[in-house]
Amino acid sequence: MTRVVVGGSTGFIGRHLLQKYRAEGREVITISRSDADLCWADQAGIDAAVDGAALVVGLAGKSVSCRYTAANRAEILRSRIDTTSALSTAISRSSAPPPLWINSSTATIYRHAEDRAMTESTGELGTGFSVEVAAAWERALMADALPATRRVALRTAIVLGDAGVMGPLRRLARLGLGGTQLDGRWPVSASRRTAGTAHLPGARGGRQRFSWIHVDDVLGIIDFLEQRPDIHGPVNACTPTPVDNRTFMAAVRRTVGARIGPPIPRWMLELGAMGIRTETELVLKSRWVLPATLIDAGYRFRRPDLGEALRASTLA
């Protein structure tokens, strides 16, 4: 069996997967809101695609790079739960269920960590909106009894490559705005506290941890998991070489040849986030995550060096 079903095929990782699988000669069936073989409303089509497939990969979900308004929060959650449930329903109805279903999750499920790294077995879950979404996403993955299908929740860190976060970061660095992103005090409304979207002051001096992975390793990990039937449950998809924000932003500046990059205080970050309609949590939360399951299983990272990964991202 070589058929692969990719849900969320038009996103950054999805596009790389399609290119890879088609180059390998595998049959690929795509699901997305548009520009795909199937749409998410076509449950009968999804059922037929999944039945007999070798692998199902779920990547769908509204981008979290937006303002956390009530409408956006609802769509972030709905887009993950509904698409995951559609795949689960299709697998439960299969006469030949796929042996492996890999579904996206996020390393943001862990708490803000400045004291130690989070692994699959020792990590502590955090609180707030982003964590609640991640936990609900994983519950949807595991909700149905699917005894013939192994399930993996891929807790992915920030993905580097030719799209995603790297485009805006390179542009900022070239403009002289690629300095350390500093946390600090900022007024938080009661409504944001209630919604769990408030970022309270954390690491000082740009010491918030930055766990990352290059898209080439995301693809490599998915291949690795196909060959390792003993691995299931949550898997941290990140390099074993996390850095802090100061180190990361300095590496970005070197990559684009930017000589200047003064530190950016919290108030500037907040105003900038409002302007480009995103949230400062994405750069100020300390994500310190290690891929213990992959390391123990013997996975060899393709791009574990940050400088090399950034150069590859720039040239891609």
Rank of each mutant, 00 (worst) to 15 (best):
V215F: 03
S189K: 12
G184V: 15
M274H: 11
M274I: 08
A173R: 14
V188I: 15
T241W: 08
C238R: 01
S211G: 04
L177Q: 14
V235W: 03
R266T: 07
P242V: 06
D183K: 06
T239A: 07
G196I: 05
V188D: 13
D223L: 05
G202Q: 08
A198M: 05
F248S: 00
V215R: 04
R277V: 02
T241P: 08
R174M: 09
Q208R: 04
A198D: 03
A250Q: 10
E226M: 02
M249K: 05
S211I: 00
G178A: 15
T247C: 00
P229E: 09
W186A: 15
I221R: 03
R174S: 10
N245C: 06
R259M: 14
S211W: 03
T241N: 10
R254C: 14
P240E: 02
A198P: 01
I213F: 03
I221A: 04
D223M: 01
I222W: 00
L200G: 02
P187A: 15
N245P: 07
T241L: 07
S189L: 13
I213C: 08
I264R: 05
G272M: 02
I264H: 04
Q181K: 14
R266Q: 07
W212H: 02
R228S: 01
R254Y: 11
T278S: 14
G205K: 10
E226R: 02
T278M: 13
L175A: 13
R259H: 12
V256T: 11
S189N: 11
F248Q: 00
R193T: 15
D244T: 00
G196L: 05
I222S: 00
A190G: 14
P265V: 07
D183R: 07
S189G: 13
R207L: 03
G257R: 02
T239R: 01
I264N: 07
R254M: 13
V243W: 06
M274S: 09
T239D: 02
G261F: 10
D244H: 01
A198K: 05
R209S: 10
E270P: 04
T241C: 11
R228H: 10
R207C: 04
R192M: 13
R204Q: 13
R253E: 11
R209F: 12
R259Q: 11
G233T: 04
H214Q: 10
G206Q: 04
T255W: 06
G261L: 08
E270S: 03
G206C: 07
M274A: 09
I221H: 01
R254G: 15
T194D: 09
I231G: 01
I264Q: 10
A251Y: 08
F210K: 01
